[in-house]
Amino acid sequence: MTATEMQPSGTAVRQPILQARNLVKTFGRVVGLDGVSLDLYPGEVLAVIGDNGAGKSTLIKCLTGAEVPDSGELKVSGQAVHFKRPQDARAHGIETVYQNLAVSPALDVASNLFLGREERLAGPLGKLFRVLDTKGMRRKAKEELTRLGISTLQDVTVPVENLSGGQRQAVAVARAAAFGSKVVVLDEPTAALGVRESNQVLQLVRDLRDRGLPVILISHNMPHVFDVADRIHVQRLGKCAATITPQSHSMTDAVAIMTGAATA
């Protein structure tokens, strides 16, 4: 990462992978988003912080198709898109790890990794009888976990409900990383985790970035944000209060902007 890449706003050469312009979303009389813009550049971790009710979740939901914004534009690699469902965002290579993880507790690790996009056997068994390629999916799940350096999950046939919080998070992140070709969005990935498990997840975030996948990270945890983020989007009262970097601002500054005690 060079210094110019850290602050891409100065250079117009690089095209954002994900671009949001003036997103507005209201729920009845409550304004969730009041004209928010956001750029995500290749190979960066963009953190989104903000107090409760600042519009973090609404922003993320609009970016990932879980909510449809009332107005505003969304572009993926410069191409205008309109997401109506999470599947639409996924089709454009945007994978999301939701705070509640969206894993199916009774299904095993491999089934969860491939949930919603199962692979069938080649040949007549798969084509005619639509038989799943369970072995193949297990093998691929194992490969993906190894590739991501997730060593805590050796057995992909264990039901997810038997896993610890960190391991479940790893499953959800691995699923996003395995299928997210352009962007991975993580919503509060360390909220429910202990110190060691949080560090593992943060390392995963760095690994994803180093593989070229840009990451949007929503978090309440300032040390975690300042640890991994390249840029920080501060959301306040439905608007983007500032976009800062860990180099230009301290944690105290960030909290001050978040709460309205200071401006960037």
Binding site: P86, Y98, A102, S104, S111, L115, L132
Partner: peptide, 24 residues
């Protein structure tokens, strides 16, 4: 046991919201 449909039936019953977010 052997088809994607079957797995989706289990997933929907297990956690409907998780299944929806997983694209089912």
């Amino acid at each position: 046991g052997k088809t994607a449909w079957g797995r989706h039936v289990y997933a929907v019953g297990d956690d409907k919201e998780a299944a929806r977010l997983a694209g089912i």
